[in-house]
Design a protein around this nucleic acid. Structure first.
Lengths: 263, 263
DNA sequence: CGTTGCGTTGAATAAGGTCAAATAGAGTGG
DNA sequence: CCACTCTATTTGACCTTATTCAACGCAACG
């Protein structure tokens, strides 16, 4: 259950100079910390994002109780955040794709409070935190963007509470699919075809459902021609149909519910 | 359902000078933004916390879509954060007591994304945000504490997901009671007697349960002599018993589960 | 070609929601 | 002070939803 940080992965931290794509020509720039920065400001932040780190599928970027030293911008790949309950069950608390900022949970107690595990081979930009705090002093827009991204994280938590606290299983799953689709779209990728690289168990954990229930509702959506399923590739056929499910089971269907759930 | 900001409450914003207690001799200092600051640093922040505002019971400090201008430190009273679903149902996303920082959700989109409603007559310290960001540049410890409090907010969101996603109703309620008790204790008040100023409906909404279920479990805890109930005053008689409930229904009882749920 | 992990499906069961009725206080007006 | 009203709360009966337990299919991999 608990993965330890392996030497193999640690050894894969390499100076960013070895990589061509730095912030200024990174495709996720406007989703990430450098959003809105001038070229000159970009240059300052680039000098200081110290390294990019590779994390192999199934391995962890950080774990509960690891000392907090840096936050990370996902550059390539896919992560989940999770925590383990005493009885061994897993609770997935988020999914993270390129452009997302993770590790912020560690600021609070100077230790990480969850695990970040790569669901596919991934690369992250390492942002040493205390140096970052200093730099953000000198670049107000950077500071503001950091606060925006923190605030966004809290908003996602709120949306998750809303989802877990007041929706049925099928509504949760429909929200999840639309939200994933929306996030993929925000990254300029075809959003109707989702390559979910997580298991049904992980989706279920995130949505507060068992994996059997997830599977059942996926099958139900498929029967209703709202989606098609090919292993972990899901194609959304009827966005409106999924929205209808979220809106409720027939009568009360005032306004379409904007899917605000986050990762 | 939706309360509008009333003139009565708005008129109650008053310069903080009219109040004796400023940060340096505020009892919540070490829980709040000034935590760890020197007297000199305190003086700087005091000059700048512009006003304290009164919010009457049932009225809102801010509402969804209100433009974001300030964050608030609860000084006296009790708040809930909530959002309304399209069908009119309420989702309570947090409870806030003195020393808590609220309104941070607004940074993200420059508008508030939830409502903050006073559950009893309350006072908050108004912290204009852009001025605060500037000041925090000059006082690194203040900046850090702000980040810590944001991070703590995210950790609470995570804990809430854990609670909503992987616990039974009785476990959720027991977690809630222990958590409230712990937060009261952190404020130096007797923690065995809780004066909950929210309704069963609000507790239920927060915990993802109906108010009937909340009532039933409270009665069950009472029967089991774990708590005593007097309207909204609840006395915790058996902390260990509540922890047992959280740990699980009999067998698997490895380690006691630390209640990390937040408001 | 067996093993192993993931996914699907069915039947039985439990947890909690829904509906309904009764009770208890707090506040109001006479 | 009392009857009346309103809301919050408790409790019971019933029913929906999702979990649990179990069997089986399928693909990847040694």
């Amino acid at each position: 259950m608990s993965l330890s940080i392996c030497d193999e992965c640690s050894a894969l931290s390499v100076p960013i100079a070895q990589f061509k794509p730095v912030c200024s020509n990174c495709g996720w720039r406007e989703l990430c910390l450098p959003a809105g920065l001038s070229l000159e400001e970009l240059a300052r932040i680039e000098r200081f994002v110290s390294a990019r780190r590779k994390v192999k599928r199934g391995h962890s970027l950080y774990q509960v109780d690891d000392p907090f030293a840096a936050v990370y911008a996902v550059w390539k790949g896919f992560f989940k955040s999770n925590a383990y309950l005493e009885d061994g069950r897993e609770q997935v608390t988020g999914f993270h794709m390129p452009g997302d900022l993770i590790g912020v949970d560690g600021i609070n107690a100077d230790r990480h409070t969850c695990n970040a595990i790569a669901l596919e081979d991934s690369d992250v930009c390492v942002i040493p935190f205390s140096r970052f705090e200093e730099l953000s002093n000198e670049v107000p827009r950077l500071r503001r963007q950091f606060h925006v991204m923190m605030s966004r994280g809290m908003a996602r938590g709120q949306a998750a509470m809303l989802l877990l606290g007041s929706m049925y299983g099928d509504q949760r799953l429909a929200s999840f699919l639309l939200n994933m689709s929306q996030r993929v779209a925000a990254r300029g990728q075809p959003s109707s075809e989702l390559h979910l690289c997580m298991t049904r168990l992980e989706i279920g954990s995130f949505l507060g459902l068992t994996f059997e229930t997830v599977s059942r509702f996926l099958s139900k959506f498929h029967e209703e021609r709202l989606i098609s399923i090919h292993r972990r590739t899901i194609r959304i056929l009827e966005t409106a149909g999924l929205r209808n499910i979220i809106a409720g089971p027939s009568e009360r269907r005032s306004a379409y519910y904007a899917n605000t759930l986050g990762g």
